[in-house]
Nucleic acid binder design. Structure first.
Length: 274
DNA sequence: TCGGTATTTCCTGATT
DNA sequence: TAATCAGGAAATACCG
């Protein structure tokens, strides 16, 4: 029997976002959490506001950027408006992250819909970044100083770079992100960034650091997406969370399901630390 | 290459 | 009965 997880997750997300946000593109959104990234099922031109924000979130994830770096309110627009922004507009809206965002959206605009399944083996050659925007008038030659430097492999949040070799016996793609993207930090960042937290986790006691998973499987899938591990489940995630008890990054909260508390070794969650 | 670290995976059993 | 919790054990992947 397969995919109960998928069904569960879709139900969770549908429930949350259906109620709170009423996204008309929810079905497409759903598919992204079940093996590929939903954003790339459609051209950026057709993205909703929420999809624009999801794209921003993914770029931040890729670059390990603090969420506060990009003012989300400057991107309160749909895909059509986003695609009409110039390089200068991106610089004005996102400051130092402007070029990165511009590069990402331009690549997506040029690439169009992308349906790369995780684990897919037929690879396209890496993009030649030496001339990345052949059709974009706003990225004319005089503006090209910002595009000649190749971005790292995961520069644009392209879905699951399929070039990953599978050498491990469990047939999973590369799993570990570079140090600095620890699970507890991922959880903390969701809690601290309401734009990224559509009802997934909520504070139970903000000052004490107590929080509760509202959509446990959805959080696990987001964590799995971050780690390129489509088989992540809440059961596995919670095992990793329990290892934090010994290290005092988390403290036990007895008798309450899905409830955790930040411990003395967890940093950056307190309002006074922000 | 190796050891340490941080998960990830699988498992059994208990609890809600 | 299913979901969750608890924790042991081993595997995996990254980093210095």
């Amino acid at each position: 029997m397969s995919t109960p997880l998928t069904t569960m997750l879709e139900n969770q997300l549908t429930t949350t976002w259906g109620i709170t946000n009423s996204y008309s593109d929810a079905p497409m959104l759903m598919s992204g959490y079940t093996g590929r990234l939903w954003l790339y099922d459609s051209h950026p031109q057709f993205w909703s506001k929420h999809q624009v924000w999801e794209w921003l979130q993914q770029v931040m994830d890729m670059y390990q950027i603090d969420a506060s770096t990009i003012p989300f309110q400057h991107f309160d627009m749909d895909g059509h408006q986003l695609c009409s922004l110039t390089y200068q507009d991106f610089n004005r809206a996102a400051g130092s992250m402007g070029p990165t965002l511009f590069h990402s959206i331009t690549e997506l605009k040029l690439g169009g819909p992308c349906h790369v399944e995780i684990g897919q083996q037929d690879l396209k050659p890496e993009l030649d970044f030496s001339c990345p925007y052949p059709n974009i008038s706003s990225a004319s030659e005089e503006n090209c100083d910002y595009v000649i430097h190749p971005l790292p492999p995961a520069a644009s949040p392209a879905p699951s770079r399929p070039g990953i070799k599978k050498s491990c016996s469990r047939a999973h793609p590369k799993k570990h992100s570079p140090r600095g993207t620890h699970l507890w930090e991922f959880i903390r960042d969701i809690l601290l960034t309401p734009e990224r937290n559509p009802g997934l986790i909520k504070w139970e006691d903000r000052t004490a650091g107590v929080f509760r998973f509202l959509k446990s499987e959805a959080v696990a899938q987001l964590w799995g997406r971050k780690k390129n591990n489509s088989s992540m489940t809440y059961e596995k995630l919670s095992r990793a969370m329990r290892y934090y008890y010994k290290r005092e990054i988390l403290e036990r909260v007895d008798g309450r399901r899905l409830v955790y508390k930040f411990g003395r070794n967890a940093k950056g969650w307190k309002e006074s630390e922000k």
